[in-house]
Design a binder for these strands. Structure first.
Lengths: 147, 147
DNA sequence: AATAAAAAAGACAAAAAAGTATTTTATTTA
DNA sequence: TAAATAAAATACTTTTTTGTCTTTTTTATT
């Protein structure tokens, strides 16, 4: 469904959010250890997100990634689109170049319903909401059982 | 969502079904021209499906791909699994190795709902049903508007 | 000012997916 | 039986995705 880059990116950003209350900046190494993702690869994803202004970062000692107020209202959907683009939300399920209401592929309607459900899920979930579930221990980001 | 291989495979098989009433065998070249898919690549997919007994084939003059009675009850889900495997239907949305009801990722429940909806769609759609929509012109498989 | 720490940038490397071409095998038909 | 046809098998190429490593730039601290 999502690319690996997107999976790592979402996990990383949720983790940053879940820690952010304390105003701490988090280094890539720490983030990746926590979410069990490849360090250099995830670094590039976070840098790309920083360039797109979905997360903030500072260099140097005690630097790292964090979230500021402009980024308060970020939705999961924004993240996915920033990393994977919007093909998942626009294209035809069977890959047809011209698939539409009045020229539909054989699964047009049903697929549209699924896709719209996914879009709704991702646009309704705010990062804040999701992150607090992680912070409170209701949900997890790591492969290891930490409860 | 689906791989290219899967998109081509589904389109090819639906097309074969939509033509099958006449008991004709269809060559890869004809199929691919109709569904606008790369010929050699699609050939390999169909050969793999034949090996898995989801479609039938015969070599030689007037040979080609067709559907027989054993394959009558094929579902779209069988096709997708035969080509892409079942990772789309089993894995965690965020790629966690251990994500479950009592150790969930932050989008576990919602993602599960989407995924189950997709599974239901694909397992309820019989090829026969879908193919007849194409045969009747209600739905299409090609990029070109043919109505 | 020098040093250290961390992101940013860029260059590679490996693996997987997508796509193409060629050879072999089975089958039909003349 | 020979020729033609089409799938099956195999080998290869290209592109994309994933992943790693090194160098550069920025910033804080001593």
């Amino acid at each position: 469904m999502f690319s690996k880059a997107c999976e790592y990116g979402i996990r990383a950003v949720i983790y940053i959010w879940s820690q952010n209350k304390r105003g701490i900046k988090l280094g890539v190494k720490d983030i990746c250890k926590e979410i069990d993702a490849p360090e250099y690869f995830t670094a590039k994803i976070l840098q790309s997100l920083a360039k797109q202004n979905l997360v903030s970062s500072t260099k140097g000692p005690n630097g790292g990634f964090y979230i500021d107020e402009d980024q308060e209202n970020m939705r999961l959907l924004d993240l996915v689109i920033a990393i994977d683009g919007d093909k998942l939300f626009n294209g035809c399920g069977l890959g047809l170049k011209h698939c539409s209401e009045n020229h539909p592929c054989p699964i047009h309607e049903d697929y549209k319903a699924i896709r719209d459900g996914l879009t709704r899920l991702l646009s309704e979930k705010s990062l804040k909401e999701v992150a607090s579930e992680v912070a409170s221990g209701k949900a997890t980001l790591s492969r290891v059982l930490n409860s």
